[in-house]
Structures are given as C-alpha cells and as structure tokens.
C-alpha cells in the first residue's frame, strides 16, 4: 500500500503534470475572474470564497482522469488487481495520492489567491479549513468517477458529467463555510456537514469504486 502511494507520488512528480498543472489552472481561473466582473473590491470580496471553491473544484476535476487511465493503458491496473492488495485499498491509495498531488497544493495556495480577490480578513482561516476538509471528498468522489469511465476512450467529458452532480453537496457546504467565515458568521453547522460528507465518502465510496473497477476489468 505504502509502496503504491510512493510510486504514484513519484510518477506525479516526475511526469510534471501532477503538482503543477492543477495549481496553475487554479491560479489562472482566479486571475480571470476580476477581468470578467471588474476590479472593484466591493464586487470581489463577497464572491471571493465561492470563486476560490469553484476554482479548486475545477482544478481537481481536471486531473481526475490521470488517477486510473494511465495505469489502465499500460496494463499495470491488471497487474495490480492480481497482486495481493485489495482493490478497495488500491483505489483508496489512488485517491489519497491524487489528494496529495492536487488537493493539498490547492489548499495551500488558496489563501494566497484569496489576496488577489480581496477576501476579507477572517475568511482566510475558514477558506483554508473548508478546503482542507472538502478536497479529500472531491478526490474520493472523483476516483469513483474515474473508475466508472476507465475503459472508455475519450471518457473525460462523460466523467465531468457524472462527477459534477456528485460534487454539489461538498461544494455547497464547503463554500458556505468559507462564506460564513468571511462574513464573520457561525460556521459550525456547515463545517460539521462538510466533515460528515468527507468522512462518509472516504469510508464508503472506495467500495463502490472497487466494484466498478472489477466490472471494468473483466
């Protein structure tokens, strides 16, 4: 298991796409928003938490098809499935690797990008916390989506169609935590719901993803 995680991380670092691409995408989306809505602080500040959440979510989505498709193409998925590792464990590790290479950099970068969008002072902590809690759910749900379309050529667009509706609850509660935090309101309820969604997906979705992968492998 640990070896698989280390291998996936090494691959992500060496292929260059892992850390860099999602992060650059996040940066560009954030930079584009003021061009579209205007540079006025009064306009940017209220939408900053939502924009940052959308940006992080899309950056996450962008890299999902790398989770399983590469291993599928070069045959390692077959070999992994015959190795003495449970498939549920394999997909969990894959999701974890995706989170470390994509989700974690986004979480770290989000406060810096908050400055660009004039995020109000108390918002930084809650933006950070909400992304830290929410991005694991995005990775796990995304891994399930990637497992669904792994056997398909050009499955990327279909995967977006399948995964984005599943992202709705995470986005709502995550952005709500960030927004309330920025406005200095009580964040407890959405924070608990967000944590619940993350832990729930983490506990249950690997089983669904592994079942889907078994169907696709046969």
């Amino acid at each position: 298991m640990r070896a698989l995680l280390l291998r996936d991380l090494a691959l992500a670092v060496r292929a260059g796409g892992g850390f860099g691409l999602g992060l650059s995408f996040f940066l560009i989306v954030t930079v584009l928003v003021p061009f579209a809505v205007g540079p006025d602080t009064g306009t940017l500040a209220p939408i900053a938490p939502g924009v940052l959440w959308i940006g992080a979510l899309l950056a996450c989505l962008l890299s999902l098809d790398r989770i399983l498709a590469l291993d599928w193409e070069d045959g390692s998925l077959d070999l992994l499935a015959t190795a003495p590792l449970p498939l549920e464990g394999i997909v969990t590790v894959k999701a974890l690797a995706h989170w470390i290479t994509t989700g974690l950099p986004l979480v770290a970068a989000a406060p810096a990008l908050g400055v660009l969008l004039s995020l109000p002072g108390p918002g930084y902590l809650w933006l950070f916390v909400s992304l830290l809690l929410g991005t694991p759910a995005l990775s796990v749900i995304g891994t399930f989506g990637a497992a669904l379309v792994v056997g398909l050529k050009r499955g990327g667009l279909l995967m977006s169609l399948l995964v984005l509706p599943l992202y709705v609850p995470t986005l709502i509660f995550g952005a709500e935590v960030a927004r309330r935090g920025a406005e200095g309101l009580d964040v407890q309820t959405p924070l608990l719901m967000l944590a619940g969604i993350s832990t729930g997906s983490l506990a249950l979705l690997p089983f669904a993803a592994a079942a889907v992968l078994r169907v696709n492998l046969r």
Binding site: F144, L148, L166, V168, V212, V215, N216
Partner: peptide
C-alpha cells in the same frame, strides 16, 4: 457492463441526490 456500472451509479447517485436536497435546503 453498462447495466452493472449504471446500477452502481444509480445507488451512489441516490445517496448524493438526497445529500444535495438537504444541502440545497440549508
């Protein structure tokens, strides 16, 4: 294969649809 995958998507989707309902309400 399609039947298997869509069936699992339907199950997972149902859970997330209910979650969305509550999220949206909130």
């Amino acid at each position: 294969t399609a039947a298997d995958l869509t069936a699992i998507l339907c199950l997972v989707g149902s859970v997330f649809a209910i979650l969305s309902r509550y999220a949206v309400n909130f």
